[in-house]
Design a protein around this nucleic acid. Sequence first.
RNA 1: GCCAGCAUAGCUCAGUCGGUAGAGCAGCUCACUCGUAAUGAGCAGGUCAACGGUUCGAAUCCGUUUGCUGGCUCCA
Length: 641
Amino acid sequence: MATEIELIFPDGNPVFYPAGITGKEIAESIGPGLAKAALAVEINGEKTDLDTPIAESGDFRVLTFDDDEGKRIFWHSTSHIMAEAVRALFPDTKIAIGPAIDQGFYYDFDRDEPFTPDDLDAIEKKMTELIAEGRVFERREVKRKEAIERFEKEGEIYKVELIGEIPAGEKVILYTSGEFTDLCRGPHIPDASRIKAFKLLSIAGAYWRGDENEKMLQRIYGISFPKRSMLDDYLEKLEEAKARDHRKIGKELDLFSIHEDIGPGLVLWHPNGAIIRDLIEDYWRRRHRQEGYLPVYTPHVGRAQLWETSGHLGFYTENMYPPMEFEDGGIYYVRPMNCPFHIAIYKTRIRSYRDLPILYSEMGADYRYERSGVLHGLLRVRGFTMDDAHIFCTPEQILDEVMKVYGFSLEILRSFGFEDFGIYLSTKPEKCVGEAERWEQATDALRQALDKMGLPYKVDKGGGAFYGPKIDIKVKDALGREWQTTTIQFDFNEPERFDITYIDEDGQKKRPYMVHRALLGSLERFFACLIEHYAGNFPMWLAPTQVVVVPVSDKFSDYGKSVHKKLVSSGIRARLDDRPETIGYRIREAETAKIPYMVIVGEREANSDTGSLRSHAHGDLGSMSIEEIITRLTDEGKPPA
RNA sequence: GCCAGCAUAGCUCAGUCGGUAGAGCAGCUCACUCGUAAUGAGCAGGUCAACGGUUCGAAUCCGUUUGCUGGCUCCA
């Protein structure tokens, strides 16, 4: 065994250490600041505890709370402390799993009595005590049998189940902190006193193993930090996020509403929301025409037979509204998707390879019977409009078509100000239709498109639909939750079921590729994302009202009217507010309505044919001629090219 | 659908121990005619989500239903 190891630090510099040195000692050798911040180390991509002797050479780094991995270790350790506190207070509780998540941690418990908010306070208090008492995390490798016996004795049936699933070659590791021992791969922070601030945030139900046939457990969510101020900042950010919530802003800016007596998940677009929607649709239609898409319009209902053929009645009934039956026996369903109708148009004549690709697009209203617990503002509804299109093409064309549609999608999302995407490639699941060769070719096309654009993406192995692989793009809402907007999905199911074909060069009938794609996803969901993204401060090209003309008093109402008329006839979405309220009141109201501009007119302006421009973002911009204001607002109000 | 919490005026929210409903904003009326984020006064506004139960008496306690919120599962 080597007596010396060579560690390559993140800056690329190699440093030699005696073999068996611990991460803690290395951190100390670098500096007291790092030693204090160090939580764990990573050697050749393997994370270990600070006090584990290091025997091998390789890439090395110290993990602190500044690293994502460091955060996860920190939060995971906090979840152990929480579990110990829960077991101390409620000894009849069984423990399941307690991982770190993107923002904090949770632990799942099995207990007959539900946890109450008061219980959370008690648990927090207990955790504080445990941390004050001093808790270190001790790692121990044990024999599988020993671990099973231990947890069986304690009645920890979930742990026993988990151990049973650890692959034969893998070590079984237990971590003990205080009175609490848990099955855990680790690593952990050296000492719980690092946890300077934490908060338990919510209680929720969660199925064991995420399977709704399994028992529902109680999940407690929490977050923790190495500094008190970080928790305060986090909680403040949470409050700010709530202020961006599209449901709140939707009400404040009079954009939309949803009514119990109309139906859950059914959206009314008020004028302010509908103006924005119109502008989105205008832009969308223009760009789609430019990209070679052909518009179609299709009905919102269709015969049962159609849905039988498409397969929806087989695999999608749970999400469909119940059938409508006529006296003559005709049965119709409201559509959950548009595809069968687009296919029907494709099938109205024999298609040649020369006709392909064919791109049919439609803002198609769809209705899906979503389970009651999943509805969520505009983000998850029962009636929505998909910005749908179907691409029919030859095998030779798919790569090109996928590249185009992926690039198109990024362009559209970016033009609405989105830059931070979660991109996912979902590949072939176990149960699926379609030939292996087609799956391969399609997945390959998707992967090539993704690679070519160079944006990072995650592969969801086996996560594709049973009918084809797909690319999904998700954007985050105010609370950091990801919502799918763009989806680009291959379909090997419906072309088969509807037997769609084209005649190739060789005169043979062949099966075209079919791709479903929505770029915005649904207008409802996209609108929600847009509201939260801009926090209601829509850019000029989308603002329902772009400018309000505010005469200082009644005396200048006539001049205000003439300015308003000029703005409107220049195509600017202007409003006049000459109500007999104080000037301060009317300015404040326009500000809270997040209207991008005001033109304030009084004696000075009336005498010089000018207006005083005030911006929502920058305040008073001073007086300028009406022509200048029109030019300025028109330029800024142009939709994306 | 499942777990937990919540539901009072158009909005945001008070309402103690069960004793019969309250504020601010918004709305309406009047006065004020105003220079860059709230002028003042007055008026009106409620089957306390719905239904059932306990009680002399229920916004308040209990049950059911509906809706919403946070999760789970599912998904645009």
